[in-house]
Computed example of a mutant assay.
Amino acid sequence: MKIDQAGKTISQPLGRSGERTVVGKRSEASSSDDSVTINPAAAQLAGAEGGSGQVFDSERVQSLRQAIADGRFTVRTDVIADRLIDSVKEFLGK
């Protein structure tokens, strides 16, 4: 969705095949509809967050913040690279 300088929605064609489009009303003051296109991969990732509904562990975040502040946090680039390669392979189905 694009918005011009006056704040009006500019029509554009829908996305690639396989994408879902969500349409909803803006507000009572506006009579135009908003639309959002969700890539299938993004929808799959959203479903992969788990059944707990919890997005992050606040205690883990606090411990990481403290480790960074104390200078104890180290970045393992080899582990990051390996996991990134594994996730790309899984995403591509290989």
Rank of each mutant, 00 (worst) to 15 (best):
S27V: 10
S32A: 06
S35F: 06
D82K: 11
R65W: 11
G24H: 10
T37Y: 04
K25W: 02
I85P: 01
V36I: 14
T37I: 11
Q44S: 09
V23M: 07
R76I: 04
K25C: 05
D34W: 04
V61C: 04
Q54G: 06
R76F: 03
R26P: 04
R72I: 07
F73L: 00
D57F: 06
D82H: 06
R83D: 00
S58P: 11
G50M: 01
E59V: 10
E90N: 05
V36C: 09
P40D: 04
V79S: 11
D57E: 02
D82S: 12
G71Y: 00
P40H: 04
G47C: 06
V55S: 09
F91I: 13
K94T: 14
R76Q: 07
D86E: 12
S27C: 11
L45Q: 12
R26V: 13
T37F: 09
V55Q: 05
V88S: 15
E19W: 12
E49G: 12
S52R: 00
V79L: 15
F91S: 05
S52L: 02
E19K: 07
R65K: 13
S58E: 14
T74E: 15
V22L: 15
Q66W: 02
R65S: 08
L92Y: 10
E19I: 10
G53D: 01
G47M: 12
V23D: 00
K94M: 08
S31I: 08
S35M: 08
K25D: 05
R72N: 14
S32L: 00
R20S: 14
R83C: 00
D33Q: 15
A42Q: 06
R72G: 01
A46E: 07
Q44K: 11
D33E: 13
R76K: 04
R72L: 08
G93S: 06
F91E: 12
D78L: 03
A29F: 04
A81F: 04
S35C: 04
A41S: 09
Q62T: 13
G53L: 01
A69W: 01
Q54I: 10
S63A: 15
